[in-house]
Design a protein around this nucleic acid. Structure first.
Length: 420
DNA sequence: TCTGGGGTCCTAGGACCC
DNA sequence: TCTGGGGTCCTAGGACCC
């Protein structure tokens, strides 16, 4: 038996933990730059506020206090997430952290367990210690656990726990689940399947294997098997090493200024490099991309990327910034208003497997020492106190965050400063 | 005026090798 | 008139997830 546990309206719930006056009120959380809606409380959903819509569409309701809006505060959500996962691991050591707000729990070997009761207990404990409401779905496969979770949330919100443990319940659950709600069936496949008369998860399991294989690759087939109760997606207790690391931002304003863009790209490269060092890895490919505003119908859309080989592979912010600037110069065209840019590191290998070239050993160790100290200080202070000069001070491209809450759980200095 | 960010996997087709 | 077979690796594009 597997469980899928997730935080209800996770980001909105995190904000409420520190602002209980907002319980029962419409709350939304905005993306970077206060751009779009990325989380909604039930009350906000009930008002018809859709996921992913641009924030300006509900600007009025935010300003007149009808809706409470928060800029995203990922330092807070990340920390709350860790605490929540900690509670999960008190129920089984087999926990796969699937995303910031959800985890698969593997209950292999739990004989004669009342899972429903276990789910209720888990919910209670998370609520008590973390303050976040969660939903729990149990099923014999991960895909069915997902479905059970959805049913718990939609059909039995008072309990918030659902269990699929017999063939009869599997069938019923599949018939209750619209095809577009199935894990692994996205927008494209859903509309394709609907055109072929598939409305529910149950209809999908009636399709011939050959048809699924031909149109949806082996993944489609796997989903079918999982829906029928045969587990083929294992729980991953150890996160696999990253294959790509990316840092990208939308600028709050269009800019054509190469100096500012260079600064932004340098900062993205440094941030990516730091994530790379956290993985204890080095990269041998670096991609820089640059885009104009894709929503502007009056001007031609320009989006280009360029990838450079990094030889020998490195995780040094200094070297990666240098490379990123090179790549930027290749794709930068004067006179365009750029809206978004980013840096992607790939070709990632563990640091210990790194091929050392004969002549760079000295420089490599020098950089390594500098980075180590930099990371140590920045981690200890919780701020980016030490930076490479190229990352700049002006931050003209900085994020717009008009509604950010405090970093309640991770930034004590900030709290104290505000009190004074 | 204003539209996010960070990932993964699969497949087809081309380049290249013997 | 006639133009092999078998394999690997890489990349771009398209699908998916949160």
């Amino acid at each position: 038996m597997y469980a899928l546990v997730d935080g209800n309206n996770f980001y909105a719930s995190c904000e409420r933990v520190f602002n209980p006056a907002l319980n029962g009120k419409p709350v939304v959380v905005l993306s970077n730059n206060d751009g779009i809606i990325i989380a909604r409380s039930n009350e906000a959903k009930a008002m018809g506020i859709k996921m992913g819509i641009p924030a300006f569409q509900i600007k009025k309701q935010i300003e007149n206090g009808e809706v409470h809006a928060f800029s995203s505060n990922f330092a807070l959500y990340g920390d709350m997430s860790q605490r929540m996962m900690q509670i999960f691991s008190g129920f089984t050591p087999q926990v796969e952290i699937y995303s910031i707000d959800e985890a698969f729990l593997d209950f292999a070997g739990f004989q004669n367990t009342d899972f429903k009761q276990l789910g209720i207990e888990l919910k209670k404990r998370v609520r008590k210690y973390i303050g976040i409401p969660v939903s729990v779905g149990f099923g014999p496969t991960k895909t069915l656990a997902k479905i059970a979770n959805r049913i718990a949330k939609k059909k039995m919100p008072q309990v918030g726990v659902a269990l699929i443990d017999t063939p009869e319940k599997i069938q019923l659950a599949l018939k209750l689940t619209p095809i577009e709600e199935v894990w692994g069936i996205g927008r494209r496949y859903a509309s394709f399947l609907q055109e072929h008369g598939v409305k529910t998860a149950w209809d999908f399991t009636r399709l011939p294997d050959a048809f699924i294989r031909k149109n949806m690759s082996v993944n489609g087939l796997r989903t079918k098997e999982e829906l029928l109760g045969t587990s083929c997606i294992p729980v991953e207790l150890v996160p696999p090493p990253k294959k790509a690391i990316r840092t990208a931002r939308t600028f709050s304003k269009n800019t054509s200024d190469l100096i500012y863009i260079e600064e932004a790209i340098a900062d993205f490269a440094a941030k990516s490099a730091r994530k790379l060092r956290e993985e204890k890895a080095v990269a041998n490919l670096l991609t820089v991309f640059l885009k104009t505003n894709r929503f502007d119908t009056k001007k031609p859309y320009y989006a280009k990327s360029f990838t450079l080989q990094i030889d020998p592979p490195t995780s040094s912010s200094i070297l990666l910034i240098k490379k990123a600037k090179e790549a930027l110069k290749i794709i930068y065209k004067e006179g365009l208003g750029y809206k978004k840019a980013g840096v992607i590191l790939s070709g990632i290998v563990p640091e210990e497997n790194r091929q050392l070239s004969l002549f760079e050993a000295g420089e490599y160790h020098k950089h390594r020492q500098i980075m180590k100290i930099m990371d140590k200080i920045n981690t200890a202070t919780g701020k980016e106190i030490l930076k490479i000069g190229a990352q700049g001070q002006s931050r003209a491209w900085r994020l717009k965050q008009e509604h950010r809450s405090r970093r309640y759980t991770t930034r004590w200095d900030e709290l104290i400063t505000i009190k004074i």
